[in-house]
Design a protein around this nucleic acid. Structure first.
Lengths: 198, 198
DNA sequence: ACTCGATAATAGCGATCGCTACGAAAAAGC
DNA sequence: GCTTTTTCGTAGCGATCGCTATTATCGAGT
């Protein structure tokens, strides 16, 4: 019976990198908890065993997704905080860049890492928090090269501000409004820093 | 057989208001998706049918929880933005009050409504977003009485900043650091507003 | 005392969760 | 050609999800 309903596909040898793309979109849109293995396998057009063979587990795939996200879509800090630019200018650019990226695609609002830290799953949360902390450290290093004495406070302020941008975008704030907020906040902070003459 | 293993409890007639307290703690700590009906019934020390008789559904209980939260723990806007106080002073106080409340209890970090808007469940999200928007409208009304012409932008900036505070607290930022961020941001914004002479 | 409406407890519904044992088919080696 | 190895497919595991039909027990009314 059932002769040969299988192997309909000629050995697809599916692309893992492309799979992470699809998974990234799903995780960003619906969150770690909102995406089941069934949804992932359907989106990647593979079966559960293939997913586990390729990525180990659902949370393994999530971790890979976050790591690729920071590499490919992470804000270019070294470029934004270039040496020939004032700290205030850097922050202005950083805020605008973040606001644009977070609200550009309404299907993927906010920062994947920041929003991933809200997962109900403890493992997913700790992974997202770890990667988020790495990004914060990188930011602090970039700031330290301009204003070493107030790097701690400034990093906290900026990280908190960016988290607000991400949350606002996730809550549905339109790009123009979020950009206006970023412009306002960045201008305020930049004037304060550049006028104080660090 | 099994004679009378039931009715161990003498007809407790459980307290619904107290039940919402317990549920609020759970939802705040673990999020809507992270709390199952089993956890709720165990915390309230009741059985599933009682929960559904009292609150209708899990999401019904969640909605009641949010509504009570804004009434009992919502930031007192009319007091913070009192008429005899400058807009800048109001914002300073608002930021400090929010930072304190969001980080006071490490087991309930952030704002329940703001963090609730990150639930994977679409119904829970829309409820939290609706209540959050109501709070934003109330804030806008309070600001309008001081600076009607820039109420829109200011509301966006403040709401986004508060979202950042909530997210930072949820990510584990300690009370002193979050308070420092709130002091810094509030001072910056207050000086800008009060110096411009609205 | 006895009935009766209200309420709580047991048990379990169908669905989905993350995950995997196992067998079939394609690629690789001889 | 045939065997071996590797990959993929089906099917389904145990656990948990939100929720409820049914039954047992209470308190109130007469």
């Amino acid at each position: 019976m059932q002769e040969s309903k299988r192997q309909r596909r000629p050995r697809r040898e599916f692309n893992r990198e492309e799979g992470i793309n699809k998974a990234q979109a799903l995780f960003h849109r619906y969150g770690f908890d909102g995406v089941g293995v069934a949804a992932l396998t359907e989106a990647l057009d593979i079966n559960p065993p293939s997913l586990y063979a390729a990525y180990g587990s659902k949370i393994g795939l999530f971790e890979r997704t976050l790591e690729r996200y920071v590499v490919e879509q992470g804000l270019p800090l070294s470029e934004i905080f270039a040496e020939d630019r004032s700290l205030g200018d850097g922050i202005r650019h950083l805020f605008i860049a973040a606001a644009d990226q977070y609200s550009r695609d309404a299907s993927c609002p906010g920062c994947l890492v920041t929003e991933g830290a809200r997962a109900a799953d403890p493992d997913a949360r700790s992974i997202a928090l770890r990667i988020g902390n790495q990004m914060a450290e990188a930011l602090k290093a970039a700031i330290s090269s301009h204003a070493p004495d107030q790097a701690d406070t400034l990093t906290d302020v900026i990280v908190t501000t960016l988290r607000g941008f991400s949350a606002a975008a996730y809550a549905g704030m339109k790009p123009e409004r979020l950009r206006a907020v970023a412009g306002f906040s960045g201008e305020l902070l930049a004037r304060e820093l550049d006028s104080a003459g660090s």
